[in-house]
């Protein structure tokens, strides 16, 4: 993500076009993919076994705290995924980068699924801890809006007969929705919410005991690798699908030409 956003400066625009070559993308991503899948699977499995069976239970939540090892990484990835969607949309609108269009289309459903799991696990945690499945406080509502933005993007990019118009409309929606990301992050600091403020920040020690923090960090890295792996796999499939469609169209048109000639 960082390399993408740093590549998004106008001077390095020509660098982007080297990666616009679908063949180059397929070769590069094919080589990277196993390095995403295998460490992702191993780290996630290890971290979840650690979190569920070996990490201590919380002094007041008891075993309910273990939901954190899924909920927190999914919440981070829901926001990070939307940020990547916005970066793709930005590149697509400014540089008309075809791969950014495809990546944005493929990011949407994955991000929406991660957001939905984040909301579901949060709800399962909220009932025993707070005493409510759901409340309309600023944090929960803004994450629900994030899910709606993802769903809106999924619907919008597929709503046009001409895919290019869908990509443009979806990119504009994604960029407008970016305003929701700081609201999600800072909602717990700006307003009174039922949701607790962040436990891990850039300044100050985390307010999670180290014995619980380590499995959380490993599961976050693991799920991030898996998220990236799923998106890259989907984007590869989309590139290949587009290639096959192009070949079929060429074949069909040449066949109809021959028919017209004979």
């Amino acid at each position: 993500m960082d390399t993408r956003s740093s590549a998004a400066s106008p001077r390095s625009g020509h660098v982007l076009h080297r990666f616009a070559n679908p063949g180059q993308f397929l070769r590069l991503s094919g080589r990277v993919l196993p390095w995403l899948y295998w460490p992702g699977i191993l780290l996630t499995a290890g971290a979840l076994i650690w979190g569920v069976f070996f990490a201590p239970s919380d002094w007041q939540q008891g075993d309910t705290v273990r939901i954190m090892y899924v909920h927190v990484p999914f919440a981070w990835l829901a926001s990070a995924g939307y940020f990547s969607l916005a970066v793709c949309s930005f590149i697509s609108l400014v540089w008309r980068h075809p791969l950014a269009d495809l990546a944005a289309v493929e990011l949407g459903p994955v991000g929406a699924a991660f957001t939905a799991v984040c909301l579901a696990t949060g709800s399962l945690w909220g009932k025993p801890t707070w005493g409510a499945w759901w409340v309309w406080d600023a944090r929960l509502t803004s994450v629900f809006v994030l899910l709606l933005l993802y769903l809106g993007h999924i619907a919008l990019v597929r709503a046009f007969d001409d895919p290019t118009r869908g990509y443009r409309a979806g990119a504009i929606l994604a960029l407008v929705g970016v305003i929701n990301l700081p609201i999600i992050k800072f909602s717990v600091d700006w307003w009174n919410t039922l949701h607790q403020p962040a436990s891990i920040g850039l300044t100050g020690a985390p307010t999670i005991a180290p014995s619980m923090l380590w499995p959380l960090l490993f599961s976050a890295i693991g799920f991030t690798l898996l998220f990236a792996a799923i998106v890259v796999t989907r984007t590869r499939a989309a590139v290949m699908e587009r290639r096959i469609r192009g070949l079929l169209m060429a074949k069909a048109s040449s066949a109809s030409e021959q028919e017209a000639l004979s």
Binding site: P56, W59, W130, S199, S211, M212
Partner: peptide, 18 residues
């Protein structure tokens, strides 16, 4: 008519709390 408990941002094992 309704009471909700607010969990703070602190997570610690029982031993640390004790």
């Amino acid at each position: 008519s309704e009471v909700l408990a607010k969990h703070d941002e602190t997570y610690m094992p029982k031993e640390v709390a004790d």
